[in-house]
Amino acid sequence: MEAMRVEHLSYSYPGVDDTPGVSVFEDLSLTVEQGSFVAVLGGNGCGKSTLAKQFNAILLPCGGKVYVCGMDTADEEKLISIRRSVGMVFQNPDNQIVANVVEEDVAFGPENLGIASPAIRSRVDQALKQVGMYEYREHAPHLLSGGQKQRVAIAGVIAMAPKCIVFDEPTAMLDPQGRREVLQTIHTLNREKGITVVLITHHMEEAAQAQRVVVLHKGNIAADGTPAQVFSQVALLHEIGLAAPETVELCYALNEAGFALPLDRLDSEECGQALYDWVKA
């Protein structure tokens, strides 16, 4: 089953006054399987955030179609159903928290859906437990750390019981600790609740943990495959201003010097093993 399907999408931001609009996509096609974990990788300004906003009808295609759980995002009647199915988590945790008490904020989405009070209460409690923020339910958000705020934002989305969540660079503003907390939460949601995850990022290490990596460059798909398949194309990544994980970069540098090492070792354990075998051979 497909969770999302993008068919020949074209999109350009409208120009202001006399300035021409900026074209982001000309002909982009992509499908995301239900329950999968897809990382969308790309440099600054490659169109990844624009793509994210297409998935829940914040932006609508200029040409082509975007389907979410079988619904056409251009169909206004389906707007609420689409936004119930696809949750969004944005980069800046401060700018997506509405209320000044954690649990009130998590309740915001379900309240908008018109759910009965006791049901909201149980959804909020469950969502907060899921992201490990239940003890903080009565805290003021501005006193939490970046990672904690972002987890509250995630709880706010899962309280609406979506089928998919699109994360638009959720860790870009966090420190390593916060980044770990948030990534762990995202992986748990995908694994335990079967939520389809689209993770937009420019951190190679985060993308390396996904099931599938889609590399966007200037509105086109430059590479698409498992992390090992994508990251072994080091030359291509360099050309478009990206990099492979350090371990792959190390093997690549050795290959440049004339050796032949595998380029699909994405973590230090595997890479160390490969280097050991190679040194001993």
Partner: peptide, 13 residues
């Protein structure tokens, strides 16, 4: 650094 990790692994081997 990731490279340091790799070398720690090599040492452990």
């Amino acid at each position: 650094p990731e490279v340091t990790r790799v070398f720690l692994k090599l040492r452990s081997l």
